[in-house]
Nucleic acid binder design. Structure first.
Lengths: 215, 215
DNA sequence: GAGCGTTCGTGATAGGTTCTAACTAACGAC
DNA sequence: GTCGTTAGTTAGAACCTATCACGAACGCTC
């Protein structure tokens, strides 16, 4: 991650400190969640005092935005890698699950409860559509049924989000279903809503993944 | 909501102030989210100064817990009312959506990103299983297939969460699917992940609801 | 109605946060 | 070697949660 090709020594040093700040920020987030992230505490861990950190990030929001960007990039990279290795929809589903379980708070940073005032930068929406492109590729690999459903024609008529991708109506629908259904199981599992219920969330997830890939 | 049957005038007054505090808390949450909730600001809105509020709620967590409890109760009440009016699965799905759109932050308070340290009180899990009971009732109303899938037998073997309910394996599966799939669409919509994509989230939601009810 | 214990609201205070301002010290280009 | 840019410091404003000690009001009992 990050901008490693820095010309001047000053820029190289700056980029290095920024990475160290983000490293400690991730550790804090992983243990206490994004809302408990303290710039003050990070600065002390690094070894510098409070306000010095504001030389590197204008404010708390900018740091969190950068972390969200990194999280998005990390998912996009994982997805692209699996796709290039010839993954089908089921493989992508399990790659998503592994990525989420690897750091639940990172998942929530991207797909969790949004801060009401927060507006995602254009940057992240671009990465999101890149992820969607990989997904649409995998969906077009499946066979398509003859006549599209009313919902599928609706999606085909409002396909701004799929932009230049040549996916058909049923592929659009499948991609969306992939996203929503897997997010449904995953987010409830990570939020702990299945704890104490007894069954194995992985089996439920796999069943949903195979239902999407098969149908 | 709340304990209105208070004996002494003191208790009645106390309950009244608690309700007023919660009212202002909901307004703050609706506009700025739960993380921005400020006990200080609420106290000033009520007309009393800072620490006085701690006579009514031990701390921030207790207030939020109380709000979560109320949110759960509100959903359970809405669900039970629809069920007693003879609602089927599709009706319950739309009741859920209306409840969520009515106050998105209330939905996130229950089903959104959890605070890592937070442990839900036994109380709320009881209400959750009450909601699940209504759902299982609606699921058993459908017809059941002959041979259960491997997942369905797994769910039937780990049916602690369904406790005393006589739902069969396929009903257990259907209830879980109802929950996860609708939450998937709903939470992504409320979090704003569909904004700018062009299509109508309501149609996607309805399609999922009917797929669950029909199958 | 008078006394008295409980409860309520207050201001003061401790310790935490984000973030700004002013100043100093170090770095690096010329 | 000079000098502008940048990094880090301390001080401080404006918030926040939460505790404590005090005075005042309430309402139950006698």
């Amino acid at each position: 991650m990050g901008e490693l090709e820095a010309r001047t020594p000053r820029e190289r040093y700056r980029a290095q400190i920024r990475e160290e700040i983000k490293k400690h920020a991730w550790e804090q987030i992983a243990t206490a969640g994004a809302s408990a992230l303290s710039l003050n505490a990070i600065a002390k861990q690094i070894g510098m005092s409070g306000p010095a950190l504001y030389r590197y990030f204008a404010n708390r929001d900018e740091l969190i935005t950068e972390l969200i960007r990194d999280a998005y990039r990390s998912l996009a990279t994982a997805f692209r890698a699996r796709a290039e290795a010839g993954a089908d929809l089921s493989d992508l589903a399990h790659a998503l699950r592994r990525w989420a379980l690897d750091d639940p708070q990172r998942y929530f940073l991207v797909y969790g409860t949004p801060v009401p005032g927060y507006q995602a930068p254009e940057d992240t929406t671009r990465i999101a559509s890149e992820i969607m492109a990989v997904l649409l590729d995998a969906c077009t690999a499946q066979q398509t049924p003859a006549t599209p459903s009313p919902l599928q024609t609706h999606l085909d008529e409002h396909r701004d989000w799929a932009a230049p991708h040549p996916a058909g109506p049923s592929a659009l629908h499948r991609a969306l279903t992939f996203w929503t259904r897997l997010h449904g199981v995953l987010s409830l599992e990570l939020a702990g809503h299945f704890t104490g219920m007894g069954f194995d969330p992985a089996r439920l997830y796999t069943a949903e993944a195979e239902a999407i890939a098969g149908h």
